[in-house]
Design a protein around this nucleic acid. Structure first.
Lengths: 153, 153
DNA sequence: CAGCATCCGATAGGATACTG
DNA sequence: CAGTATCCTATCGGATGCTG
């Protein structure tokens, strides 16, 4: 649903003279063109990026959870969004949904192998957040002080 | 939980296999409650999560870029969104914006140290995407076949 | 319990036109 | 070139009510 490709290449590969400090990073260009929708990064980023997926994955990384357990664990998520989130994760093969024909119904969710492998990255992201949260907050404050009239949030 | 404090970006870089980046993270529960808004993860995730930030970071990881260069490199981004994205990144202290008083105006963007450190994770995410893209596409197709009436995208 | 359906406000984000 | 300013639509996401 995210198809907006217009042209294969726009002639952007100039300036390879990276005398910059980002030495450790190899050429981050897995598919020949960073911004190209079809390189597969967009798909994953969309999933990682949406508001709740990451938190669901995080919670499931600690073991299988039932619907209500997830909702209670993830503070602030509405039932609607939990349903949607968990459905999308299921569709992507990151989560397995199991329905037990009990009364009342009982459903639990657990990560697939693929989903579990994403946990590492998600947690790394969380770690990064923790490490840099202060710096970011500081930077924001400084920016806001310096640009009081700005409306960038 | 508090290691990973300093990124090993002095030359060597964790390979695509993204081994134990999260060695110290056993339970991802940085502030007592995963979904809590105040734990700081949300902020960063929102930034990583939005549609364009990651791609901008990716592009800048290859070196400083001017506005138009960025826009050309990131296929599909509108000038409005590029402006907003790059402003937010600047505000967060991930990107530095430099204006040269030439005519016409010339502005370039480059990653800060903090921004560059994020590149590692983004790279890992990109690698993950590439590794699992087929599996995900397959899972989606299977799901859609099995649930033809479903409207989850 | 585990949803689905519906309404609705908020916001992300594209298109276009104009400016220094 | 590097934006700003509008307008407008699609989607996000919360609240509520109903069902098996």
């Amino acid at each position: 649903m995210d198809q907006l490709q217009t042209q294969p290449q726009g002639g952007s590969f100039v300036l390879p003279t990276h005398a910059d400090v980002t030495a450790g990073v190899a050429d981050l260009d897995p598919c020949g063109q960073p911004g190209h929708p079809d390189c597969g990064i967009r798909d994953v980023l969309d999933r990682v990026g949406d508001k709740w997926s990451v938190l669901v994955i995080v919670e499931l990384s600690n073991g299988a959870r039932r619907f209500r357990e997830l909702q209670r664990a993830i503070d602030g998520i509405s039932q609607r969004m939990l349903t949607l989130t968990v459905r999308r994760l299921e569709r992507d093969g990151l989560v397995i949904r199991t329905v037990y024909p009990t009364v009342p119904a009982q459903v639990d969710y657990r990560l697939t192998e693929t989903g579990a492998s994403l946990t590492h990255l998600v947690k790394a992201l969380a770690d990064w957040s923790l490490v840099h949260r202060d710096a970011i907050a500081e930077a924001r404050h400084a920016y806001d002080t310096e640009h009081p009239d700005n409306e960038i949030r």
